[in-house]
Amino acid sequence: MTLAAIDATGLTKVYGRLTAVDHVDLKVSAGGVFGLLGPNGAGKTTIIKLLTGLSDITEGSAYVAGFDVRRQPMHAKQRIGWVAAEVILDDDLSAWENLWLQAQLQRISGWTDRARSLLRYFDLDDRRSDRVGGFSTGMRKKLEIALALLHQPEVIFMDEPTIGLDANTRRMLWEMIRGVNREFQVTVLLTSHYIEEADALCDHVAIIDHGRFVAQGTPDELKARVRAEFIELETRPPLAEAELLALPGVQSARSQGSGWLLRVASADETLAAILTRVDPRTIHRVNVERPSLESVFIDLTGSRIDSTAGEVPDYRKFYANLRRAQR
């Protein structure tokens, strides 16, 4: 009988007038990689803050590694690891000193052997005496994961683990997270707004929007739920809804900004019809969304997860943090 690694019921967080997390039920079974997928500001990071006891729960209950986060936060904290989106280490200390400090804070004895083997595992053993300030982003991320694993936690929280990383480092990190999950038998709860990350990495995904779960399941289950494809179409002048619904295969049309979002049985067929019936010179933009976690999100909420509009300030902050941290 395994205990649920995370078991939250009716989890709610209200900041003033904003309900950041709205009655979320979250059950994560031990051993897997669980992804919270959603756009920026959906409440992913807040959920992590609530589950780790960093932020007070407004309403509802949360058990992490078997302990009530509200009543026994210290017990829960002994059993969790944490990897921050912005890579938080003490740059003035060496890799080994960072590990030493973490061991003191977690009050674990006999940690040196484990620390050595973790440094070997993450290929950092020849840099253990070097100051962390001089490490590359990839190395810093690795050291942070090593810190999170040092006290043999049952659950590791990873907040946007690959944000701001280039494609190669990101792929390397995916493999590393998979490996960590397997070899250290630790449950991973991660947040992401990258569709392909959730798809490639997670056994189980919860899609979150405006503080609520809109869908949950394995990536395949979620994709199977949407038996449709989507076409985003923008024309000048705009087409009338009736014209669109008259196109073959169109199930519904939803206005999206200055264009339309068409739910269709087969994008290929409808696209061919659009190109013959609509004057191609009026088409301003057309985009096809195949079945993916993105299309699940579009189906449920009418908007995209990866809308770049909301991301710009976030990235700026991220890189500013990184620069400051590397100084």
């Binding site: 780790t52 006891g53 960093l54 210290m74 017990h75 904290k77 002994q78 969790i80 944490w82 921050a84 912005e86 938080i88 003490d90 973490q102 804070l105 977690q106 009050r107 943090n321 400051r324 941290a325």
Partner: peptide, 14 residues
């Protein structure tokens, strides 16, 4: 500011 306080307070440190 650098988030290190979070790293500390996410361990069982009062």
């Amino acid at each position: 500011r650098f988030g290190f306080m979070k790293r500390i307070l996410l361990t069982p440190t009062s």
